[in-house]
Design a protein around this nucleic acid. Structure first.
Length: 1095
RNA sequence: GCGCGGGUAGCUUAGUCGGUUGGAGCACCCGGCUGAUAACCGGGAGGUCGCAGGUUCGAGUCCUGCCUCGCGCACCA
């Protein structure tokens, strides 16, 4: 404990930056951890950001919630270590570098040199590191950035390799050939969570194509939205159960627009259900049959030279597939094996030829058609439509009207590259997969054990994702990333390398067999192209080359729980005691990202969940409700607020603006409001206390006064503190930080500042030592220090300054006022002895009855002011009498009320009928079940009773019936309201059955004494304002002259009072005017004119 | 299209089990109060509680449909 020093004026930004220096000098962050060294661990895992983009306000939000929980748990006595981390691999980095160096294709990169390119990536990763570090430090996110994990570090990569080998050994890692969304520009395929980032709505031409049967004049109609896949067509799929029809065109279509068409007499086959949707001609149905009847029929290829038949017996025939539906298209699915997942699977099943008509560059390969060869497929739509439309169509074997039946613009969402915005092509390619489908049940089971906030993200969104889990395509045909540690021989022998040591051994073995490998030292760089340079030896002596892929960078971050410790090569104990982690927190956009990959990796590698609690944060929107994004340019710079209102206000605003998981409309004005309301108020409360405490040499230890010896006002604010703190803690426990903080803010502003401090000001003015002043100072000390402790996890700056001055240590070393479960013997992050934890709490005693009484007192004070407004009686003119009618005993607060109401004498009136009458109100809840439809009529009769008192008597005697319903006492509420003609007001306290009514009545009659007092108060008030204008010291004395014109008598006692209140060393009170004096100031009140001179 | 979460005063938001009179804060207007801070107090104005139906004596609250915003999924042919 310390004797407080005066507070000084507030400059939040200066306060915060100065405190940052202090923290840094004191090593405050490390100390806050070290001092809990013996506590139960609470494991936090930092989701690694990429430092190749500038941090925005949305990053501040995420970091605020991470920090909040870590600081809170620390104060609860847990050991909360926080290792920083950086995500440094992957496409975002490569794209950045490619743009900067103008290397927009893989060829360009390889020409430039992979080694140089990767070096550029390695450097680019740190472009904004200092910006991140400065933001992190400035906002006081306490995380260890000096020893972070970095995904490009060899140790980290080695752990990733190890993890992959575990998967490989369990048979969960496999090489496959699958149709994947592929970006020709970046030359890479994407996993489902990356694809999800890039859906865009686009309008594209879709076409209905006639596939001419070889053994019949008819054509089968099929539909596609990707004309570029038509040259690759090798089959048509129909639903075996679906009903198809053969139709004959009976007359030419009117108002035909666009390409294509059909001649009269032409016959076409399609699903019966879709005739109306598809056909634009009048037709007659020639035949009707199930899809199974069509299976096996062969048709003419559209582009005869595009795909070689090979030895396929099923190419260009009708195939059966039960996934074919009639929701759109024609009920016939055009099948191009290499460019659709279903197509590919079907093709493999029935033996269709699997040939690419499109190259990896997104252009048609040579030999498709002379007008298409070498052209980018997305630019060929028109050409293909023209080719098909020509008489006899592109293959010269179609009907005279051509192969195109119709074209139709089609609006749909189509996946685009999340980095380059190019449309993705579904493309069959070699890829590596993690067999997530094999562990689906485990994923679901582990997810069930996670405490999600909000719960619906876990059960709903994430659960949904897991229930539809697909094998994870983890390989990328890229350069900058964790290389896939698999070596493969030409005949398919494979080895997965799980460590540098293993790599060295394999290299040595290969060299012993005569291979000429470069050196593989202990610190070999585990990146491309170094690792590509090693050729290993298969078990049967064949050379093995590394599979030329890098890993999906999400795999890297998914390895964070163990790779951050270089597990299993180092840090074994650290890992064992920190897995699974207790808490992670990121934006909801990480649901399919990090939240998933963490679980995916931990499930496949450790057969364990990765985290126990996950806070999923809502998106940050701008003030308009638009998502903040680089491309929109609406990102709020956190420094705008750090430099204006400070980090405290910014953080508090973010937490109180809404639930953590709801989208936050970031309103810069809201930050300003938070500053003005919460922090300025808090500072002024503190300043009030600290200034007087310093003046008086107050020492909370030696000047301690028991709570029981303090005034009801003191005991009230202490009880309120205990109540609010308890709710606050409960809010924290339930992830309801917003509710907790809103209530605390309400407490600080309303209870503490606007009532307790306002009511207590005069108590500290007394220069002599007295019990009342001590009571107030002790109370302020306790309330302020506790409030600081409660706020500290959310907004750590100002409260630390306050706490240091009042308590002599950092608030970040303080204990949580609701107890320190983490410090208990045998406690864990998940469980502790509740009773023992409660015993460590340091809250003052609660007195709910007192809180209730004070609430009523405050309400009566407000009621009194309302009465005065209604009666046009100014506040400074006292009333002689005030009566409180009915209600609980408030005797101990009559003094406060008299002052607040400016009433000479408050008394209790027990004769209710003197000022009040009753009114009856129907109680619908009781009445409705019996009265049913008549309830409103009955209610009206009760409400409009001419003599409610008489009606109440009738009800009590059981003799009242309305519309055949007997009215019981419980059917009505008795309200007491003031009789008209009195300056009075009635308020209802409480709700429902416990509600009661209290009235306040003020006597509006004037007496000479009251008028004199009122006059004295008005004069004093003006003089005080003048003193303030003149900037006089509080202690300074004045010389005073007053002239009163048309005034009531000012009694001697009131003159004396003016003199003492205004610290006048001399005072002369004249009667009459002084309008001629230039120096006199004047004012008028209730017809009295006053002139005065202060000198 | 499917799923989740929203839509309440000009703005930000609270609203429990359905109960008859929907609360706050900011901004605005009037008044009061102040050795009390970017303050405080009273009053005023401002609401078709997204729209339309339904259930009910009674709906911001429950049900159905629709509109709209955000997010996610899946879009395949």
């Amino acid at each position: 404990m310390a004797k407080p020093k005066p507070a000084g004026e507030l400059d939040a930004v200066a306060l915060e930056t100065a405190l940052l220096n202090t923290w840094s000098k004191e090593n405050a962050f490390q100390n806050s951890i070290e001092s809990r060294r013996g506590g139960a661990p609470f494991i936090f895992l930092e989701g690694p950001p990429t430092a190749n983009g500038k941090p925005g306000i949305h990053h501040v939000v995420a970091r605020a919630y991470k920090d909040l929980v870590c600081r809170w748990k620390t104060m609860e006595g847990f050991l909360v270590e926080r290792k920083g981390g950086w995500d440094t691999h992957g496409l975002p980095v490569e794209i950045e570098v490619q743009k900067r160096m103008d290397l927009m294709s893989n060829e360009a990169i390889e020409e430039y040199g992979m080694e140089n390119f990767n070096q550029a990536c390695r450097e680019s990763v740190w472009t904004y590191e200092s910006a991140w570090r400065e933001m992190t430090e400035r906002m006081a996110y306490w995380v260890d950035l000096d020893n972070p994990y970095v995904t490009l570090h060899n140790d980290y990569v080695e752990s990733c390799w190890w993890a992959l080998k575990q998967m490989f050994d369990k048979g969960l890692l496999y090489r496959g050939h699958k149709v994947l969304p592929y970006c020709p520009q970046t030359g890479t395929s994407y996993s489902s969570h990356e694809v999800a980032l890039g859906y865009k709505e686009v309008e594209e031409p879709s076409v209905y194509v006639k596939f001419k049967l070889t053994d019949d004049d008819s054509s089968i109609l099929a539909w596609t939205t990707t004309p570029w896949t038509l040259p690759g067509n090798v089959g048509l799929a129909v639903g075996p159960e679906v009903t198809y029809v053969k139709v004959k065109v009976t007359e030419a279509a009117a108002n035909w627009s666009g390409a294509g068409g059909a001649g009269v007499g032409e016959t076409m086959i399609l699903a019966k259900d879709l005739m109306k949707e598809v056909l634009r001609h009048n037709v007659e149905i020639v035949e009707e049959f199930p899809g199974s009847d069509l299976v096996g029929r062969s048709y003419e290829p559209l582009f005869p030279d595009a795909v070689p038949r090979g030895d396929s017996k099923t190419a260009w025939t009708v195939l059966s597939a039960d996934w074919v539906t009639t929701t759109d298209g024609t009920g016939v699915v055009h099948t191009a094996v290499m460019y659709g997942e279903d197509d590919y699977n079907l093709g493999m099943e029935v033996g269709l030829p699997a040939f690419h008509t499109v190259g990896m560059d997104g252009a048609f390969v040579e030999g498709i058609h002379k007008e298409l060869d070498g052209r980018y497929v997305k630019e060929c739509d028109e050409t293909i439509i023209e080719l098909l439309s020509a008489p006899n169509g592109s293959n010269g074997k179609g009907p005279e009207s051509g192969l195109l039946y119709r074209e139709k613009a089609y609006l749909h969402d189509y996946p685009h590259c999340w980095r380059t915005d190019h449309p993705l092509l579904y493309y069959a390619m070699d890829s590596w997969f993690v067999r997530m489908t094999a562990v689906k049940e485990k994923l679901l089971e582990f997810n069930d054990g996670v405490e999600w906030a909000p719960d619906w993200v876990g059960e709903g969104r994430f659960g949904e994702w897991l229930r539809n889990v697909k094998d994870w395509a983890i390989s990328r045909e890229r350069y900058w990333g964790t290389p896939l540690p698999v070596w493969r021989s030409e005949d398919g022998q494979m080895k997965c390398i799980g460590s540098i040591e293993e790599l060295q051994a394999e290299v040595a073995r290969a060299n012993a067999a005569g291979f000429d490998n470069p050196d593989c030292p202990d610190d070999v760089d585990l990146h491309r192209p170094i690792v590509d340079g090693f050729t290993l030896l298969s078990d049967d002596g064949k050379p093995m080359k590394r599979e030329p892929f890098v890993m999906d960078c999400w795999f890297d971050s998914g390895c964070a729980p163990f790779a951050q410790w270089h597990h299993p090569f180092d840090g074994g104990e650290t890992f064992d005691s920190s897995f699974p982690v207790d808490y992670i927190c990121e934006g909801v956009d990480q649901t399919r990202g990090w939240f998933y990959t963490l679980l995916a990796v931990s499930t496949t590698v450790f057969d364990s969940p990765a985290y126990k609690r996950c806070l999923s944060l809502g998106l940050i929107l701008d003030a308009e409700g638009k998502k903040m994004s680089k491309s929109r340019g609406n990102i709020v710079d956190p420094w705008d607020h750090f430099n204006r209102e400070g980090a405290d206000a910014t953080r508090w605003y973010m937490v109180t603006a809404g639930a953590p998981w709801s989208p936050l409309k970031f309103d810069p004005n809201g930050v300003r409001e938070t500053y003005a309301k919460m922090f300025l108020t808090l500072w002024n409360i503190y300043k009030f206390h600290a200034d007087y405490a310093a003046l008086d040499g107050f020492d909370p230890e030696t000047n301690h006064l028991e709570v029981s010896e303090r005034t009801p006002l003191d005991r009230w604010i202490l009880s309120r503190l205990a109540t609010v703190a308890t709710n606050y803690h409960e809010g924290f426990t339930n992830w309801d930080y917003h509710k907790a903080c809103r209530e605390l803010e309400e407490f600080v502003v309303n209870d503490l500042s606007n009532w307790y401090v306002r009511r207590s000001r005069r108590r500290l003015w007394d220069e002599a030592e007295n019990t009342d002043k001590l009571a107030c100072q002790n109370t302020l000390h306790e309330v302020l220090t506790t409030v600081c402790q409660l706020i500290a996890p959310v907004s750590p700056f100002m409260v630390d300054v306050i706490y240091r001055n009042l308590a002599g240590e950092s608030v970040h070393q303080a204990s949580w006022p609701l107890g320190t479960p983490g410090s208990l013997e045998g406690a864990t992050a998940d469980s502790w002895d509740e009773d023992a934890a409660k015993a460590t709490a340091t809250l003052p005693p609660q007195d709910l009855a007192l809180e209730e009484s004070m609430a009523l007192v405050r309400e009566l004070a407000e009621t009194g002011r309302r009465i005065r407004v209604d009666a046009s009686r100014r506040q400074r003119l006292p009333c002689g009498d005030g009566w409180i009618v009915s209600g609980p005993d408030l005797a101990e607060f009559h003094g406060i009320l008299a002052e607040e109401l400016n009433v000479e004498n408050i008394s209790i009136e027990t004769d209710l009928d003197r000022f009040q009458q009753i009114e009856l109100a129907p109680n619908f809840r009781a009445l409705a079940p019996r009265a049913r439809g008549d309830v409103n009529s009955i209610a009206a009769e009760i409400r409009n009773a001419e003599n409610p008192a008489a009606m109440l008597e009738q009800i009590k005697s059981g003799s009242l019936e309305i519309m055949g319903i007997k009215i019981e006492e419980t059917d009505v509420e008795v309200k007491r309201v003031e009789k008209s003609g009195f300056a009075a007001s009635t308020i209802q306290v409480g709700q429902g059955d416990d509600a009661y009514h209290v009235s306040l009545v003020l006597d509006m009659n004037d007496t000479p004494e009251l008028l004199s007092k009122g006059l004295a108060r008005d004069i004093t008030r003006r003089i005080q304002a003048k003193r303030k204008d003149l900037n006089l010291d509080i202690e300074a004395t004045i010389e005073l002259q007053v002239w009163m014109e048309n005034a009531p008598e000012l009694f001697q006692a009131d003159q004396d009072w003016i003199i003492s209140e205004t610290r006048a060393s001399s005072a002369i009170f004249h009667t009459g005017d002084n309008s001629t004096s230039a120096t006199a100031e004047s004012f008028e009140v209730d017809g009295t004119k006053i002139y005065f001179i202060v000198s």
